[in-house]
């Protein structure tokens, strides 16, 4: 009987530290599959963020650098500019990218850095314990918003893919989700496409991935998927927001 399913070469054998039901594991796998399929593992450098994915280098089997909170796009810029032959990707959460790292991500995109950004949006700070993120939904409870996010005080959630699509410099900007198998398959295609744009030296590429955080949302994994679909997806609409072809 032939092999029908195997672990990507770009994933290590380590068990992840992620909570049950967390979707980081799925996205790690999609990134690893894309790297394998493009045959770029030995030329790839990943940038780990500060957040739950800080230990991403334990799971994705390529060269890695670890950035300070929010600075991954600047670090990726430094690597890519001095070694344009390397494939450089950042893997960042919503606190990292959309809060403290807003300046770095906007300017890296605006310069058209030929890097790939994987942006995990689960509407909460994970590693530090469920604090409010810029992406937290109005009314959503967080440890720093015990009565739920009050938009009158803290504004509305930031829609990064929408914001990034306003940048005039050509780029690939898409929002995907990993809440259902069909979504996972589409997300995989988007991540691979993002890397392909980099391999072809075409443009900056950005994949926002709507994810879940059962632990900090205080839900079961199944309920989390349902809540994300019902609450996040209407506000964070999926699809391609910008492609270099349309520029």
């Amino acid at each position: 009987m032939g092999k029908t399913f195997s672990k990507p070469e770009a994933l290590t054998d380590n068990h992840t530290h992620y909570c049950p039901g967390c979707t980081h594991g799925i996205v790690h796998r999609l990134v690893a599959e894309a790297i394998d399929e493009l045959g770029i593992r030995e030329n790839t450098v990943g940038i780990a963020p500060v957040g739950c994915a800080v230990l991403a280098y334990n799971y994705i089997d390529c060269d890695f650098q670890e950035a300070a909170h929010g600075r991954a796009p600047a670090m990726a810029t430094g690597i890519k500019r001095v070694r344009p032959d390397l494939m450089v990707f950042t893997y960042q959460g919503d606190g990292d990218l959309a809060s403290i790292g807003m300046g770095e991500i906007i300017h890296a995109a605006n310069r058209g850095e030929k890097i790939t950004v994987i942006f995990i949006n689960n509407a909460i700070y994970g590693m530090t314990g469920g604090q409010m993120a810029p992406t937290t939904m109005p009314g959503q409870r967080a440890t720093t918003a015990p009565a739920g996010r009050d938009a009158a005080q803290t504004g509305m959630p930031i829609r990064m893919a929408n914001l990034m699509s306003e940048i005039v410099t050509p780029g690939y900007v898409t929002r995907q989700a990993v809440l259902k198998p069909q979504m996972v398959n589409k997300c995989k295609k988007a991540i691979k496409k993002a890397f392909e744009y980099q391999v072809a030296n075409t443009c900056f590429s950005f994949v926002e991935v709507i994810s879940t955080c059962p632990t900090n949302w205080g839900m079961t994994p199944i309920d989390s998927l349902k809540w994300a679909e019902e609450t996040l997806l209407p506000y964070y609409e999926l699809g391609d927001y910008k492609t270099p072809e349309e520029a």
Binding site: R71, T77, G78, I79
Partner: peptide, 18 residues
């Protein structure tokens, strides 16, 4: 020319790490 000294610090870090 980076967007800030904060970002430049990490451009240096990235290039050096590479």
């Amino acid at each position: 020319q980076g967007e800030s000294e904060v970002a430049v610090g990490y451009m240096i870090f990235g290039a050096s790490g590479a």
